[in-house]
Write a protein that binds this DNA or RNA. Structure first.
Lengths: 180, 180
DNA sequence: TTTGGCATGTAATCCGTTACATGATTAG
DNA sequence: CTAATCATGTAACGGATTACATGCCAAA
């Protein structure tokens, strides 16, 4: 018995911050905010929107102000309630699958230089990610919008910074510790 | 077009380190070594073993030395070759889904105290994990076995340590930064 | 003798991505 | 005009967990 359906709650969460969004908007929003720790595909979003509307957690209406044919959704009271309930449940601890670490673990069976090559690549990637997140942090922190969600956005950005830094340091350290 | 089939390679990798293992053994091995960044269920392992044997990458034989009815597998030359090839491919960057961060991000819509509660829990969890990994690191480092895979085991353990430390520090810092 | 661990497998189900299918609008 | 982007959806597929189903062996 699992029951998570996190896609539904990701949608409810975004609609709690901003209403009158289309499926397309929702995707954009997620990509531009939480992409580094969460993502949804259209294949998930559209069926989910239909389901949530059927359940009365969101309401959809055709957007007349737009020239395009788009349907925008907003949270209902019940939707907000359900979201709050889900947010209160302790999050499931993820069972991550890290292909890089698996390849490092089996390093002894790899061709010479493979592991170093992978480590150099991730080091570069995480250093770039770190720089980018630090820039975003400065921007967000400087934005004068004192919305209630600001502190939470900042917290997740800092999580990304901590993780990118830890991964970079590990990669650097490991490159030094490996022979050849 | 994706093509990963990582379960297969996880099995090949373990068999490269130790031969004559049953499906049950493989599960045990994975749980006791790479569990914090990789796991496989029986529902994956047994079909995968059958497939790998059909492809000639491993060979299985009924274990006569054991009183139990078990079939043990070993890597073939071709299996070792395939593994080496896979290990050389740059690992796919994971698209992680972190439910905790999602709940933090939507914190403004949560009941009062929810986020703090979650953060306290993960802080405790990661601090315990950190202590455990540090212990394991000392044990493994002290083990006189100078096997070629030792350095790679240590590297993955240190990855766990870096990550657990980063997550703990982030949680502590975030608890301080949140109001109330 | 009965419980826990060893041991193997299949079936049901879920979750998620990718590909497919279609079409309108807008900017260059 | 034409390419990019907006926009919505379904179908096919694959990967993974969980539940189901079965049964033996060893230790308490």
């Amino acid at each position: 018995m699992k029951r998570t359906a996190t896609t539904d709650f990701a949608i409810l969460g975004v609609l709690a911050q901003e209403s009158r969004l289309s499926g397309y908007d929702l995707r954009q929003y997620l990509e531009q905010s939480v992409a580094f720790f969460w993502s949804e595909s259209f294949g998930q979003i559209y069926p989910s929107l239909a389901r949530l509307e059927r359940q009365g957690l969101i309401t959809g209406k055709v957007d007349r102000e737009s020239a395009r044919q788009r349907k925008v959704y907003s949270l209902t009271g019940r939707g907000r309630q359900q979201l709050a309930h889900w947010l209160d449940q302790t999050p499931l601890s993820e069972r991550p699958r890290n292909e890089l670490l698996l390849k490092v673990f089996f390093g002894a069976a790899a061709p010479a230089g493979s592991v170093r090559k992978h480590l150099k690549e991730v080091l570069a990637r995480h250093e770039a990610e770190l720089a980018q997140l630090q820039m975003i942090e400065r921007e967000v922190a400087a934005s004068d919008q004192n919305s209630s969600s600001l502190v939470y956005s900042l917290a997740t950005i800092r999580a990304g910074i901590h993780l990118a830094r830890a991964r970079s340091e590990w990669a650097r350290e490991t490159l030094n510790s490996l022979p050849e």
